[in-house]
């Protein structure tokens, strides 16, 4: 029982030490003010910021279609590779190539 208590105490202490870094940051009132200020500056900044995105709906659909096809191709290729891996492993374990050499 004592041992369990000790373990709990050590764990709590470790977690407290880890999170004490973040506790230093807790200053709610200032945070809210900063957030408001940030929103204003963010809006000003966004006016001159280039946010990359597809030019039109055609390019946008093209990209989504590409992503879907890419993942389908990857899944199919992985399936084929798995079969190939099984086959080459089997040939290796039955010493197919070493027997052929002899």
């Amino acid at each position: 029982m004592m041992w369990k208590m000790k373990r709990l105490l050590v764990f709590s202490l470790l977690i407290f030490l880890l999170f004490s870094f973040f506790l230093l940051k807790l200053n709610f009132a200032q945070e809210v003010m900063e957030e408001e200020q940030n929103k204003i500056t963010q809006a000003e900044e966004n006016a001159e910021k280039i946010v990359p995105s597809p030019k039109d709906i055609k390019e946008s659909i093209g990209i989504y279609v590409f992503v879907v096809w890419m993942w389908i191709a990857i899944i199919v290729l992985i399936y084929i590779l798995r079969l190939k891996i099984k086959e080459v492993d089997r040939l290796f374990y039955i010493r197919f190539f070493s027997a052929k050499k002899k």
Binding site: E48, I50, M70, I74
Partner: peptide, 24 residues
């Protein structure tokens, strides 16, 4: 090759959906 394919898929997906912006 299996690992490369998975990494390529993740890279392309992340690059398409989270592109870096450019400030003034």
């Amino acid at each position: 090759s299996v690992v490369w394919l998975i990494l390529l898929g993740i890279l392309f997906t992340v690059a398409i959906f989270l592109p870096p912006s450019l400030d003034k």
